[in-house]
Simulated scan of single mutants.
Amino acid sequence: MAIFLVGLTRTGPLWDSSRPMEEQADWSAHASYMDGLVDAGFVILGGPLADEIRVVLAVEAGSADEVRATLGRDPWSGTHLVVDTIEPWTIRLDAREARR
């Protein structure tokens, strides 16, 4: 049974709700940073919820503090995105495991 952490972030004070995500200031720097976290295997799944105010990230990390520290290095940290919660998530259903 795999254990992951799920982070819920929300838009921060510099988020311009009149513009799509890809048109926000420093988008390229944020996207590059997040792509690096995916490449490193830190972020497993991620993306905005339908309200486009909240973003969910499933990460593989040792602790909530590690997640906060890693997300704190994102160029959007504190400006465009603010961490709301980080919770442990125990995976009990996994289609990938059933196929093995």
Rank of each mutant, 00 (worst) to 15 (best):
R68S: 15
D94Y: 03
D74F: 05
W76K: 06
D35T: 05
D94K: 03
A64R: 11
L71T: 02
R68A: 15
D26T: 13
G36S: 04
G62T: 00
L8I: 07
A64G: 12
V56E: 00
V82H: 08
P20E: 06
E22A: 12
M1S: 13
D16Q: 08
A40Y: 02
S17P: 09
G7Q: 11
R92Y: 06
A58T: 09
L45W: 05
P13T: 10
T9A: 13
D84Y: 13
E97T: 12
A29V: 01
G12N: 07
P75F: 11
A95R: 12
A40R: 09
R96Y: 13
S63I: 02
W27S: 13
V82I: 10
D26N: 15
D74R: 04
L5T: 05
G46A: 05
D16V: 03
A69W: 00
G36I: 00
E87F: 00
R73N: 08
T85A: 15
M21A: 14
V82E: 09
D74M: 04
E52R: 14
W27M: 13
P13Q: 12
L93K: 03
G36E: 00
R100D: 08
R100Y: 07
S18T: 13
P13I: 09
P88K: 06
H30Q: 12
A31R: 10
A50I: 01
A69N: 00
G41T: 07
D51W: 00
D39R: 13
H80L: 14
I86R: 02
D84H: 14
